[in-house]
Computed example of a mutant assay.
Amino acid sequence: MKCVTGAEALDMHEEFDLLLLDLRLPDIDGLEVCRAVRATSDIPLIAFASADRGLDRVLCLQAGADDCLAKPYGPRELIARIEAVLRRARPARAATRRTPAVLARGSLCIDPATREVRLNGRLIKLTRKEFDLLHRLAAEPHTVHSRARLMADLWGYREGYAPDARASRTIDTHVSAIRTKLGAPDWIVTVRGVGFRFGRT
């Protein structure tokens, strides 16, 4: 499956066994996408950079890519590199994979392994980003998470990014949807001028 933007790649990469990433993206710097993916996932990742951008290839390897090809490249080379990366990744992933702990917050149960949320035993259907946002807040219930931190960690924006009106609306929309699906606004508390925190412990 092909993703056109970095945001789509960040939202969907956990569904796949391998990520092929072009560093030239229309919305987010490819290096930032690489760092964001590697911060939360051990998915095998091969990046692509222009042949005249040798520094980019070095930086993407430092950002966590398993390999980086110079463009243009041949299909046989790509297949060989994919096979090599997958061979290296399978035993490492099998050895390090652990079952994430289930979070229980009162009547709310969040299972990161199955990505299921249940309230009083009833399954609550959340989108991928809604789940990620709720899990982040519930995992640190006494921490106020800034908008900039959430945009960096969950949406892949660069470190120190100051959310503009569009980005703020994105977070607000997800928070509002979660509150609606959980049936009460106090599951997530808005801390004015700062960000959000989990509302029930």
Rank of each mutant, 00 (worst) to 15 (best):
P185N: 08
K181L: 11
E14M: 13
T40H: 14
T127L: 09
Y161A: 14
P112I: 06
R97W: 10
D67F: 07
L103R: 11
L19F: 02
R76M: 06
P26K: 10
P26S: 08
D111C: 04
D132I: 00
R149L: 13
R200H: 12
V191Q: 07
R38G: 08
L25C: 10
P44I: 06
D66C: 02
V191W: 08
D111G: 05
E15S: 15
L182Q: 04
G106V: 10
L55C: 02
R97D: 11
L23K: 07
H135I: 00
L25H: 08
D27K: 06
D17E: 15
D17G: 14
F16H: 15
H145F: 12
S168T: 15
R81G: 04
R81I: 04
R97N: 10
F48R: 03
M1S: 15
L126N: 00
A9R: 03
T5E: 08
D67P: 00
R122F: 06
A138K: 02
A184V: 02
R128D: 10
R166F: 12
A104G: 10
C3I: 11
G160C: 06
L31C: 04
V102C: 07
V191K: 13
I28C: 02
R179W: 02
R122C: 08
A80C: 07
T170W: 01
R200D: 01
A148E: 12
D27S: 06
L86W: 01
G30P: 07
L61E: 03
A63R: 04
